[in-house]
């Protein structure tokens, strides 16, 4: 296996690791707050579940980028190409990490909306979805970069 191939794997790993961490933290945050509300009112489970899943998409995006990178794996990849794939992984890795946590925090605040004004919970969803735009954009650039290297 060449150094390039190792870099490619490293890139794929980074994409799924960091975006995964972001989502795990985000989903965890919402879950903690949500469990408190459900303890009071179990009927709000559905709405809170939707809020909780929202920060989970960054992990999926990281997974998607990792998958697309791994599709290009060969054991004789040049150093430059490997480095290219690694760089292509960076946008979704870094933005996925941070936006996952940020989205988790917005969604956690949204749990408060569900608790106090359940009729307005749609707005809480949308506010959390606003954060996701930047994860989408990062994923987009990652995908385009992967295409460029390949």
């Amino acid at each position: 296996m060449t150094m390039g191939s190792v870099l490619l794997i490293l890139g794929a790993a980074c994409a799924s690791i960091f975006a995964g961490i972001g989502s795990a933290k985000g989903v965890g945050l919402v879950g903690e707050a949500g469990a408190g509300v459900i303890a009071e009112d179990p009927s709000k489970f559905g709405k809170i579940l939707i809020l909780q899943i929202l920060p989970g998409t960054q992990g999926l995006y990281g997974f998607l980028a990792a998958f697309l990178i791994l599709n290009n794996y060969t054991s004789e990849l040049s150093f430059a190409a490997g480095l290219g794939y690694f760089a292509a992984a960076l946008p979704i890795a870094v933005v996925g990490l941070i936006s996952g946590i940020a989205q988790g925090r917005v969604a956690t605040a949204g749990v408060g909306v569900v608790a106090k004004r359940p009729d307005q919970s749609g707005k809480a969803l949308i506010m959390a979805a606003m954060v996701e735009t930047y994860a989408v954009l990062a994923l987009l650039i990652s995908i385009l970069l992967i295409g460029q290297v390949g």
Binding site: T57, L60, T133, L140
Partner: peptide
Amino acid sequence: LSYSRLLALGLCTGVIASV
């Protein structure tokens, strides 16, 4: 640019299904 989420989410479903 915001409509690129169509691609992101669309690909996600498909790729995870394939995996």
